[in-house]
Write a protein that binds this DNA or RNA. Structure first.
Lengths: 224, 224
DNA sequence: GGCGCCATACCGACTGGTTAGTCTGCTGCC
DNA sequence: GGCAGCAGACTAACCAGTCGGTATGGCGCC
């Protein structure tokens, strides 16, 4: 375990660009580019795209490092294994969504609005990170057992938080109690999960419009 | 999970014992027995289970043939490739669900009931074939391009049929038109797709109960 | 203000293991 | 005697991970 990839801010300075090397591999555009993206992030980005396109197993480490413009040495310098890459992708999206859900859930608003906002927000961020979602739901089983367990635990936290919102509304009587809250949550996240199958960025609907529609469907289903 | 000789009826094979090998694996009764499940079906069943458990890529054809009690020769006698196996699994579930949807859609009932029945039925059959669903949504990208295209086309047919039901109700005014029918369909199938991630056969709800709840959510969301 | 020393960041050939698919051949039935 | 239905050794390809090697910049010390 030696992935200390965090803590890297995108870069602070101006056109600093230390004379890289004699043999350059992929030559990141050096012309007045203010930040050459750090290698770990390039690797993660390349892996995300390739995993989403071809699947985890169909993507060789060689392809990833080529897409990132480095070599295997670099990858194994920053990550312990191919599996680590996948885990890092999961951790990133989980962190993001948990933060946003917490923010919405704690807002000082009526529960209907909090739920609607949270439900719509997860749709928007899911669309903005369609690749992550694709990988998430398609490749979970490629994670090592411990990592899988860890990811599941965090997912459960997320699920619980969301469910609590639904239950709060049900108890308060503003939502129908006809359906168990658990099922309601799974119903909604099914549609989120499903987004990467049908949503196309150049389609007729903007992410926000889709989000509004899906949140609306949820709230309508919950009308008493 | 070494399953060598199980699941088959003990072959009552008489004296027949090639001097070549002392280890034979499954001993299918060769004496004009017509009932032991045919090899192709055994292979399909084994592949379905293993693909669902471990994923397509993580399952070697060696594992499949061992689970089916045959050898590679048999598999490649009946199927052109590992890919073919996957395609066959898809084709089977697609055929089944299309048939059932058609039956519901054509029934002589008010549109609300037809939609509710169809929506609930797809949930029940999906639960009854959780493995197929898991494979379907997780491994589509492993299909060869042409096969993938074919499967997509059939899926679209299915989607269209379902959408037509929603639109019929919207036009008739019994369903709200607030949400485009396409989105409504994707919303519902998202939850179906998602079933394999959370539904557990030994959980508190029967397949029918889950189906009723999910169909109910759909119909409630469509209330004018 | 130069010098040795080392850590960091990366390179890329190599290894050991795995796998899909092939091919030759056996065997019991018609 | 011919053929469907299979057995199972074999091969060619591939791939995750390793490891010895190289360039660069910082730092203490004289």
């Amino acid at each position: 375990m030696r992935s200390e990839t965090e803590a890297d801010e995108p870069g602070k300075g101006a056109a600093r660009d230390g004379r890289r090397s004699g043999r350059q591999v992929a030559t990141v555009p050096k012309t007045t580019e203010q930040t050459t993206t750090p290698v770990p992030q390039r690797l993660l980005a390349a892996a995300t795209r390739l995993f989403a396109e071809q699947g985890y197993d169909r993507t060789s480490v060689q392809e990833i490092v080529e897409a990132a413009g480095v070599t295997k040495g670099a990858l194994y310098h920053y990550f312990g294994s191919k599996d680590d890459l996948l885990h890092e992708i999961y951790a990133r999206v989980l962190r993001l969504q948990q933060e946003r859900l917490d923010a919405h859930a704690e807002a000082d608003e009526p529960v209907e609005k909090r739920l609607r906002d949270a439900a719509a927000d997860v749709v928007v961020t899911s669309i903005e990170n369609l690749d992550d979602g694709q990988i998430f739901f398609r490749s979970m089983h490629h994670l090592s057992p411990e990592k899988n367990k860890q990811v599941r635990a965090e997912r459960r936290r997320y699920h619980e938080r969301f469910r609590a919102l639904v239950e709060e509304g049900q108890t308060a009587g503003v939502f129908s109690s006809a359906t168990p809250a658990d099922l309601v949550v799974d119903y909604h996240f099914g549609s989120v999960h499903h987004l990467s199958t049908w949503y196309r960025p150049n389609g007729p609907l903007t992410p926000q419009q889709v989000a509004d529609h899906l949140a609306d469907l949820l709230l309508r289903a919950l009308r008493p």
